[in-house]
Design a protein around this nucleic acid. Sequence first.
DNA 1: CCGCATCCCGGATGATACTG
DNA 2: CAGTATCATCCGGGATGCGG
Lengths: 133, 133
Amino acid sequence: MIERDVTDSLEPLDPEMFDPVCPSELMPIRVGDKWAGMIVQCLEGGPRRFSELRVPLRNITPKVLTQSLRALERDGYVVRTVHAGPARDVRYALTPLGRTLLGVLDVARAWAEDHLEEVMDAREAAARTGRHG
Amino acid sequence: MIERDVTDSLEPLDPEMFDPVCPSELMPIRVGDKWAGMIVQCLEGGPRRFSELRVPLRNITPKVLTQSLRALERDGYVVRTVHAGPARDVRYALTPLGRTLLGVLDVARAWAEDHLEEVMDAREAAARTGRHG
DNA sequence: CCGCATCCCGGATGATACTG
DNA sequence: CAGTATCATCCGGGATGCGG
């Protein structure tokens, strides 16, 4: 029998959840700040701890992660819960409002699958002909 | 009979097309850079001239508009056409790829209508309780 | 483990003035 | 009309280190 209380975690997040090679600079659609979209996706499966989030968001510094989380909290997308105890236990979870962003992210992903290659081609062509960089 | 050749314009753009009071800083979904989404909407009805675009984008400086347009051109969303002649005539138009962004913008608008008020409330509540701003 | 403080850099944005 | 050039500014993002 599998138990799940406040003390244990969900399945660990895939460290390779986000392809570092993915041309995110080509992506014209952004949700929140640079990390907000990825954070929201990390929280889709359930509440996560600060350090858990740092794994898929490779190299994110604590400061920047805190900034993004605070902004998400301030606007009502995320709730921060502190379970008091011998060891500090902080979890971040999506609110219903935060979950509405998942739909938007799906639209963004679908758009990317359909069109991102065209963007790559256009940018490459532009680079060859000069004029843009 | 209504004629429409290259020399005349479409209906002029509504100068109040974008509410300056609209809480755009609350909006978590962004398409392209700060101005790209608005530019794409301006071009929905057909090709537009540089100066036409400046009207609804009140206060945008030529430099910034040029930057946004160049970026949109570079990535294949917009084409720039120069009709030679006595008076210089430059038009910007959406490509088919650029038109695919209109759908995304519709999704963004729909999301905003459904949820932006919740964000306002959350932010206001956060401001009152301190901790965020 | 979680998060804040400080310092820093580069890019995005803008004001102003000038040009073909 | 359709931009360019220059300078100033602001802010996101990050490195590093400290504190509860």
